Structure formats: C-alpha cells, structure tokens
Amino acid sequence: MEMLHLRYFVAVAEELNFSAAARRLHMAASPLSQRVKDLEHELGQQLFDRSTHHVTLTPAGSALLPIARDILEQVGSIPWRLREATKPRRGTLFLGMPAGVHPDLRARVNELARRCADRYELKRWPGTSADLVAAVHDGKLALSLVRLPIADPALDVLTVMSERLGAVVPADRFAGRDSVALAELSEFAYVASPGETTPAYFEQLDHQLTTLGIRKRIRLTNMGYGGVTEIISSEKAFSVSMLDERSPMHGYRLDNVAVLPFTDFHPQLDTGLIWRADRADGGDLDELVETARDVFPEPLAH
C-alpha cells in the first residue's frame, strides 16, 4: 500500500466529491478514481458508495478515515521529530504572533519565555493567523497566538484572551456619543480589512452583520488597516475593531475616527494559543505546554 493512496482516499472522504478532491490534489478526476479503486481492491473492501449525484462513505470507509488520518499525521511529523531528536538540549523555539496583540497578552508571553528560559529560547515570529496555523501544523513553529476560530483537528487550542469589539465610526457624525446602536449604521457601508489579513472570525462577523440588516459593503485590496480608517474618516463607512483603548489596533485611528461600544450587539474576538496535539501529550513540547497552561490559567478579558 502506498502512502499516496491514503492521501487520495482522505481527500475524497473529506470532500465527498471526486472532482473537488482532484482539484485539491492538483490532478485529474479519472486517475484519482482509479487510485481509489486500486486501494479498495488491495484492501478487499468498498470504501465509497458512488452514484451519479453523490458520493458517501461505506462503513469500511468510515472506519478507515481516522486510521488514514492518523498515519498521515505520523508521517508528516517525522521531520520535526527528527529535528527534535538531534538538536541540542537547550534549543530555540518559535512562537507565532499575529498583528495587534494586546500588551497584556504580550506580557504573558514574556512570562512564558521567562519560565522556560532554562530549556528553550522562545523567539517570536510574525504572520497572519492562517499562515501561523499552517506553520504550527507543519512543525515550523512550536506554538502560536492566533485569532479564533480555527479548524485543524491536529492542533490543540487554549483560549488566552477575549476582546470586546466596537464600532469604528466617523467621529464628526457621532460627536458626544458614548455608544451606538447597530441600527444607526444601516446607512453606512461596512468595510473590513483585506481578506489576506482578516481573521476567520471577521468572515463570520460579515455574515452576521448582513443578517442584522447591514447590507452595504466596501471591499478593499492591497490596503492595510490604515486604509480602512481613511475611508471611515471620510464618513462613507464603518468597521468593527477592538474596543479597548490600549489595543495596538487604535494606533491606526485618524483624527475623525472613534470607536464606540454597541448597545444592541456584542461581538468579541478571541485569541488562542495553539500547538500540535501530538507534540504535547508525551511529546517534545509537553513541558512547555504545561508551563503555558500555568501562565494562562484563564482567558484575559478586555
């Protein structure tokens, strides 16, 4: 049995569509279907029920899926396991840091680095949440702070901070106000940060705002957080960002921009600390993860 056969099987099992799985694997659907048939022949079990309109797992396929995933995860972990087995006693580990991390959370990260200094030098590595999740999965980063939610069964998540979000609005239009109702913003367009820098949570928030009556949108490309506040200051739009004045995200505010709490809407952004599950339970990061749990006994709230 070849490892590629298991990769093909998992892709089809997760997509339940041979064409979609083939696109994911960068191959044609016909050879993919044949490889799956070869695997079924080798195992002596039918793994999928196929019809013109749908593909479903058979009982044998459902039983094989967690086994195949586990085998692929074990094979994928060989590079970092080998690196860990051959590195010096005190090594350098990298911890991912997304943009806009609150200073109180940074202080906790400093405490974690201090507590594990006798065994590890913990260095920080910047990136978007999506890139940092991938780097932890691949073993390039030991740990990372990321904006939640994430969807990767290979990773464990410890929620370390919850931040209330407010409406970023033109200050002139809301002068003297200390709060705002979402209904008051229906005439404005909602502007989010560019997709490549936006955490998955804000995609969910976008859909939620639509459900609550905010229909207009401004989509930005090749523009950072500063561009968002530039549009808001011109009184054409509003956005949603961290409410706490100490958040680094307030550094992007212009003179005619204010952040107000909602009276009828209560969004919050959670940040988690993530690591590969198989590196913690008896793995090379076991001690570091236990220290992290001590440093973050419960989520910070702001």
Rank of each mutant, 00 (worst) to 15 (best):
E196H: 08
A237P: 05
Y252F: 14
T210E: 13
L212F: 06
N256L: 13
M242C: 10
T211E: 07
E235C: 13
R253K: 08
T229I: 03
A183K: 11
T198C: 00
G195L: 07
V240K: 01
P199I: 13
E235W: 06
I214S: 07
Q208I: 08
V228P: 02
G227K: 10
L254G: 11
E184G: 07
I232P: 02
M242G: 10
M249G: 04
V240L: 01
D244Y: 05
R215T: 10
T197H: 13
M223L: 04
D255G: 05
A258Y: 09
G195F: 02
T263D: 03
D255R: 07
I214K: 10
L260Y: 01
T229W: 06
Y252K: 10
A181Y: 04
Y252E: 13
F202K: 10
S179L: 01
G224N: 10
N222G: 07
P194Y: 15
R217F: 01
S234K: 09
Y201C: 03
T263N: 07
F202N: 02
M249V: 13
R253G: 00
E196S: 03
E184Q: 12
V259C: 15
M242F: 08
V191G: 00
D178L: 04
G226H: 03
E230C: 01
V228K: 05
E184F: 03
A183T: 14
L243R: 13
E187K: 03
V191W: 12
S239T: 06
A181K: 11
K216F: 06
S241W: 14
L254R: 15
G213N: 03
G176P: 12
V191S: 04
R253T: 06
T211R: 14
Y190R: 10
F238W: 05
R246S: 13
D178S: 12
N256C: 14
M223Y: 02
L209R: 00
Q208Y: 06
T263S: 13
I232K: 00
R246H: 13
I231E: 00
D206C: 14
G195M: 02
V259I: 15
G251H: 02
V257S: 11
L254P: 04
L205H: 04
A237K: 06
V191N: 03
G251N: 07
I232E: 04
D206F: 12
S247V: 04
V257H: 08
K236R: 15
G195R: 14
L185N: 12
I218F: 03
F262A: 04
I231S: 09
E196A: 14
R217Q: 08
L212A: 12
S247Q: 06
R177I: 01
A175C: 09
R177Y: 15
F262K: 03
E184I: 03
A189V: 10
L212V: 04
T210Q: 15
E196Y: 05
M249C: 02
R246D: 14
H250V: 11
T263V: 11
L185K: 03
T210Y: 06
M249I: 15
A189I: 12
R217N: 00
E203P: 00
R246T: 13
L254F: 06
V228W: 00
L254E: 04
S179V: 02
R177Q: 15
Y225M: 12
V228C: 00
V180M: 05
G227Y: 10
T263P: 02
L182F: 12
